[in-house]
Design a protein around this nucleic acid. Structure first.
Lengths: 227, 227
DNA sequence: CCTTAATGACTGACCGGACAGTCAGTATGC
DNA sequence: GCATACTGACTGTCCGGTCAGTCATTAAGG
């Protein structure tokens, strides 16, 4: 809920402002971001920021939600709901990686919501962030169990949780300094992470999930159901 | 590298100071933590902090590394290197969960290193954080491939990466507001996360990993090796 | 048309609170 | 009585938020 004034300014100006804000918040984090510097980068007076938003908090929340919408659009926008779970996952991971390359700032802001001192933001955002993805994953999994593409003894909630966990770590590794270093340490990658290496990693991860979801032909032991 | 003065004070005082510092950094994050408040909570004058440490940064880095050491001790301290990978993983997850309950502050600080504006700290710490775990996991996996407990077509670096990823998400879910909300959303847990629910989740996760690592009896397709 | 009035977006100097780091003086203990 | 640890008032800086005034645009009046 920004002020109405924000709607009235030239779209290009608004776009510039939001984009610079996202980049700066991602670069510095919330507390270290200086409204004066943001104003200057956006080519706007500091006072104007307060014509558009009540406070720094409101601006941050708006930018974070906006980035979330963009990321959702980029990842799910061109996804055909009729594809099977495996095609969808490959699409999701690939679009996620592409989005991480184009707009790391929004993913960094998302990751930041989980950091210390950001609990007020987490309380406001976490559920709305995760609900869409969780529901989508569970629905497709359930459907494909029905279609016989996924093993029937699967705990769908658990599976959705694990799959999304791998996705989070995957994009975090593309976007955060710490997670990038960690990935290179584990995979023993020496130089910069190339586009091809990312595609490879993506395929391996989807392959892992496929292996986990696929119905077992032979005498594989079903996972014991708790609850 | 704190100042020598830190070594000369009473252990109880030092302990109190470090513990309060960890809690405060975890609660507020680095920038929002006020040295005066820390001093007061630790029962020490602000000036004294600067007798022990050159700067806030140095104090933070010391506390973070200290927490890392404690966490490593708690998780790996009583681990018998002769156990097979599955026993070790169960131990690691269980000790990790217990440590998260006793000292969430250290894990929160660890997670924080990956957040925006913390890149200077990430550059200093990430490798030393991850190296130990990565090497340990890979070594045990390799050994148990040799022992026939783990499927031989496994890419060990990849497997170590994925296993540790699940561990990170697991402990993050016990310790960060955002990740806790996310887990409850996925698993459709209504109330507070009980100790029993954590133990259950832990066992399910280890079970998942076991399923992924175990040699396949029947006609399971080996994962195609890249590189 | 041209002049005047009204509107509201825009501006940046300014304010007040917060906070890292200092230091001159005091306590302690050997 | 010397050395060393301790102390908290103080300083300078930084930064979120304000506001009195400016200016471009549009509307009204002649």
């Amino acid at each position: 809920m920004p002020k109405q004034t924000l709607d009235k300014i030239k779209p290009a100006k608004r776009e510039k402002l939001l984009s610079e804000a996202a980049k700066l918040f991602a670069e510095r984090g919330y507390n270290q971001t200086d409204m004066a510097e943001l104003a200057s980068r956006a080519g706007v007076a500091k006072g104007s920021l307060y014509n558009y938003f009540e406070s720094k908090q409101e601006l941050y929340l708006y930018v974070a939600r906006d980035g979330l919408r963009r990321s959702r659009q980029a990842v799910y926008g061109e996804l055909d709901p009729e594809w099977d779970i495996f095609a969808q996952l490959e699409h999701i991971f690939r679009q996620g990686a592409a989005f991480a390359r184009r707009h790391p700032e929004y993913l960094i802001i998302y990751l930041n919501v989980s950091s210390a001192g950001m609990d007020p933001f987490a309380a406001k955002m976490s559920r709305e962030v995760e609900k869409y993805t969780a529901d989508h994953l569970k629905a497709v999994l359930a459907r494909d169990v029905g279609r016989g593409l996924v093993r029937p003894d699967l705990d769908i909630r658990q599976a959705a949780f694990w799959i999304n966990s791998l996705y989070i770590i995957f994009v975090a590794s593309l976007v955060s300094k710490h997670f990038a270093l960690r990935m290179r340490e584990y995979l023993e990658i020496k130089g910069r992470l190339s586009k091809a290496a990312v595609e490879d990693q993506l395929q391996r991860t989807v392959e892992l999930i496929r292996r986990f979801l696929a119905p077992v032909e032979g005498a594989a032991p079903p996972v014991q159901e708790r609850n």
